[in-house]
């Protein structure tokens, strides 16, 4: 004899399902900076169950032209399959637009340890011409740094150099 689950139990089991799915998707590493996860970066927006019991993962691109977007969607799908979820869908949401403010403090710490200076809050208006953000060297901690290039190897990063220890390093720009 099967017991019909009451509404409350159903709700609770839904919640734990969602939590398990979140944990699986959240652990997916960023393809280009694998020391941080897509949850650290704020790219994974939500996990929900739709009416048909399908797990819906919502991800947002960092930049419109980010080449990793397709791969991230595929990786989320694979991670959820591996965690035992069969009925899964990944959706891309554009709004609200991703911002570096969504990078968690854990994510910032990991970036710094990897040698990438995390985004700093800046009072500089994004429209201000010839502006340069002050960035601390992730290697030696000195504030004496200069920008080499507004763009680095990926659109999200700028290249800086430390004037104290001379280390070149990437800065994850505010966006």
């Amino acid at each position: 004899m099967t017991r019909i689950p009451d509404k409350h139990a159903q709700h609770a089991s839904q919640q734990s399902l969602q939590q398990a799915a979140w944990a699986a998707a959240a652990a997916v590493p960023d393809p280009e900076i694998p020391v941080v996860t897509i949850a650290d970066l704020g790219i994974l927006r939500s996990i929900a169950l739709d009416e048909e019991g399908c797990i819906v993962a919502q991800v947002t691109p960092t930049y419109s032209g980010c080449p990793a977007t397709n791969l991230i969607q595929q990786m989320v799908l694979e991670a959820l399959h591996e965690a035992g979820f069969e009925n899964v869908r990944v959706e891309s949401v554009l709004s609200p637009a991703w911002t570096t403010d969504w990078i968690s403090s854990e994510g910032r710490k990991k970036l710094r340890q990897f040698g990438i200076a995390p985004p700093t809050e800046t009072s500089n208006s994004k429209r201000a011409l010839f502006g340069e953000t002050l960035v601390t060297c992730p290697h030696c901690g000195s504030g004496e740094t200069e920008r080499v290039s507004e763009f680095g190897s990926t659109p999200c990063k700028a290249l800086y150099r430390c004037l104290a220890c001379r280390e070149p390093f990437d800065y994850f720009k505010c966006h």
Binding site: P61, Y63, S64, G65, C66, V148, S149, F151, P155
Partner: peptide
């Protein structure tokens, strides 16, 4: 300059991303 190479490629990338959407 190499820096400008990166900047122009980046702008092109933004535009192609917008076009795709």
């Amino acid at each position: 300059t190499l820096e400008e190479d990166l900047a122009l490629a980046n702008i092109a990338l933004d535009l192609i991303g917008q076009a795709r959407a």
